[in-house]
Design a protein around this nucleic acid. Structure first.
Lengths: 216, 216
DNA sequence: TAGATTGTTAATCGATTAACAATC
DNA sequence: TAGATTGTTAATCGATTAACAATC
């Protein structure tokens, strides 16, 4: 699905986690109020953008004081689904897939890893933290039985489309694609790309373009 | 630095790696020509966007045939710096940092990992592939001596800003931030965020928003 | 030639920023 | 009260899409 049917604009959605993380830091530091100017400064935005973004939330600011951090954290967490559990599976038990399975941050944010899968017979059965790597044939059953919503693609680019097809067929509703390629899915499934190499290339471009532009 | 001084618009930069990957796939498959319509269909864009994007490149298409894949791959690779070597260091030798150090794809795309660092004395000295984990005190010297351009932040959010400061002081020109937080840097340094948890939250939002929107 | 495709201009669409009345 | 801040409207800015002449 390409169009936004009634949901928040994409640029806003991408900024919400930034607000969320920052507000939690502020709360941890004992801060009770934060203004749009304060958040803007912290995150490199304008205060206008912050107010526009937060106006989409179920929350009211207070003149002269700003937003109450406790309420803001709750409102952001609610929109981002941090107050619900999201079940996911990881396909690919290479270095990256295992690192994700062992990453404590996922669980802390409400993402519950229900399984890790690999096509390689040699790898199937090995332990990754508390999980055992399962064969691809088991994917369908696990996704259906545990009502898994999200599949993470952590395989080489060459097998990514095949894995995406299997995840879609099993019934996940969203894919996080870590492979360095584009995957096609039907309209009812969402894909978010999180490709480290593409991000590095983007960084390499802006670094080199800067040299050319200002002569340093 | 926030503004684009003469360089490509950000949306274009983010699409370039997609074109690059796809064109390489086509070339591997023996395809010699690809039209803007073909690329658009493959990547879920419009042909107008593709032509606009590629018009920024040092390359001319041919009427009735499209773009020659060989030349297009070269032009995209050049802009993305794929024909140069980019030196980087990884800070944080946890699961994620090690996975990146061992990830063959980085080297394949011209990113040369010059070192991996960790603040934990227990971890310093252990082997990660062909590299030994070094103490944070060694960071400055390695960055300067090897002319490292990019630092990857693969530490917990709580230490990310401190690591960013050290990398900036050592003289890197860009940061890839994998930690779930915002990092501040001076104007002459670029930051690209690649935060998996934020991407998962974005995905969780669009999935849940879809339920509400179309009643499924 | 006829038809498909580029490259580019103009139109549309959407996001960001500015401005300011309302509020506490 | 005076001043700071929100919430929202209007203006600006930028990106995407449409359209079409030029081209092979």
């Amino acid at each position: 699905m390409t169009k936004n049917d009634g949901r928040l604009p994409n640029p806003v959605i991408r900024r919400l986690p930034k607000y969320y993380v920052r507000v939690r830091e502020l709360r941890d530091g004992g801060r009770e109020w934060i203004s749009s100017h304060g958040l803007a400064e912290d995150l490199g935005l304008t205060s206008s953008t912050v107010r526009q973004d937060l106006s989409h939330l179920d929350l009211a600011g207070v003149s002269k004081r700003g937003y109450e951090t406790r309420l803001l954290e709750a409102a952001l967490g609610h929109v981002l689904g941090a107050d619900a559990v999201h079940r996911l599976v990881i396909v690919g038990a290479g270095y990256l897939g295992c690192a994700l399975a062992l990453h404590g941050g996922l669980r802390a944010q409400g993402f519950d890893t229900c399984g890790i899968f690999d096509a390689d017979r040699e790898v199937v059965g090995t332990k990754v933290g508390s999980l055992s790597v399962r064969p691809m044939g088991a994917l369908n059953g696990v996704v259906r039985k545990k009502k898994v919503e999200v599949g993470m693609i952590a395989v080489p680019a060459a097998s990514a489309q095949e894995v995406a097809d299997k995840l879609v067929e099993a019934g996940v509703r969203g894919l996080l694609n870590l492979a360095y390629c584009h995957v096609h899915v039907p309209d009812h499934v969402e894909v978010v790309d999180a490709r480290i190499i593409a991000s590095l290339q983007q960084l390499a471009y802006v670094i080199s373009a800067k040299v050319g532009a200002d002569g340093t």
